[in-house]
Nucleic acid binder design. Structure first.
Lengths: 216, 216
DNA sequence: GTCTATATCGAGATAGAC
DNA sequence: GTCTATCTCGATATAGAC
């Protein structure tokens, strides 16, 4: 293919984004991304040194895409309560995907919270693990989870801003509560493949938003 | 080791249970279980034909363990509202584990919801995938997720029973709502490593239970 | 910039001695 | 029942031709 390099980079990130969501990060191979894009495996190392760098690019891409979506929510209405309702509408737009694969942000975060290698049951050593030369062992899952957290941080801060605009005094708590409720709905709806539960919960979350911001 | 066989089987299941939780199912190797138990890799195939069978045994073990815990909740008090509060106390007992690795049930369910192999973007074929001989391809992730769902079903039915005993007319919905709220709390608390959020949410979930069952 | 060939490792699973 | 040796496959990653 004679297309320009940066175009290929974007296609890799886009395919990886989709595959990380559908199949999970650990279960997605370079071959899978190669099959989805038509770009040969070896070329990936021209754009990314490691699989972790692809993950970084995917998270950056998700942050950028969600930023755009949140800006559109702000452009659509000046009423912060309406903006929050537009935000929860994701439960409706993405219903089929959520039922099949859960929330892209939540499931990635949960997956990356899992460690690699042996489980440390040893109660004698409570410091960082060290190798024979005394250096700390690198733990990639730590930085990976920190990276994936960026998407949640973006959403939390935006939701908090909307609650604050409505004059509540616990906007930070309410922001975490809203995200937690949406996460809980996606986990249970996906586990039970229950679309009706998603619809009902969507309504009740909107009612909860209205109730919490009634004095605005 | 000259210990009896069934003892070894239990030790394998127990170690796998812990490793599936801390490291994830897909990221747990037979070598990891071997290291944790001292039982050589090859012996696993005397007790289990495949890794899937180990997963089945782990889920059965979790169902049995949780059944015991729920029976203890019932033995502790005849007040169904008190029983539900004892149930939510898991958010307190298991706080450190949840902060590190999330909920064992929810994260396993989310992990097993992810597919294997290529993502089907092809809109022309909307039936089951077939191989060249026309047979349906087996999709182990389907039966795996169905199996893991058993733990959620146990909890949902028990919670529903408690709500029903309190005379509410939407016990089934409330059971799903309670599990969803707890799942949401664990996902966000683990992502943000926020113990305070867990404590606060625990209180608010208990308040919500009391509110929903006020007329009992 | 693009692609093929390959190195290296660890996974799940099997065979067969004891 | 227990254990070692090994098979086969697919993973990430690298080397180097074009």
């Amino acid at each position: 293919m004679g297309t320009k390099g940066e175009g290929n980079r974007q296609r890799i990130v886009s395919a990886a984004d989709n595959l990380f969501y559908r199949n999970g990060y650990n279960q997605t191979s370079f071959q899978d991304i190669s099959d989805a894009t038509g770009i040969p495996r070896g070329n990936f190392y021209y754009y990314f040194k490691t699989k972790d760098e692809i993950l970084n690019a995917v998270v950056d891409s998700r942050v950028a895409e969600l930023s755009t979506m949140l800006q559109q929510c702000e452009a659509a209405t000046a009423d912060a309560r309406e903006r929050l309702h537009l935000f929860t509408d994701m439960l409706e737009f993405k219903r089929d995907d959520v039922l099949q694969s859960g929330c892209p942000i939540g499931t990635l975060s949960s997956e990356l919270a899992k460690a690699h290698g042996a489980v440390n049951d040893d109660s004698a050593s409570d410091g960082l693990r060290q190798d024979r030369s005394g250096q700390e062992l690198s733990r990639p899952e730590i930085s990976r989870q920190e990276k994936s957290k960026q998407v949640f941080l973006l959403l939390r801060d935006w939701v908090q801003k909307q609650f604050a605009a409505l004059g509540v005094d616990d906007a930070a708590d309410l922001a975490m509560d809203l995200l937690a409720r949406m996460q809980g709905v996606t986990v249970m709806a996906c586990a039970f493949k229950d679309a009706d539960f998603m619809r009902r919960s969507h309504r009740e979350i909107n009612d909860w938003i209205d109730m919490k911001t009634r004095n605005a």
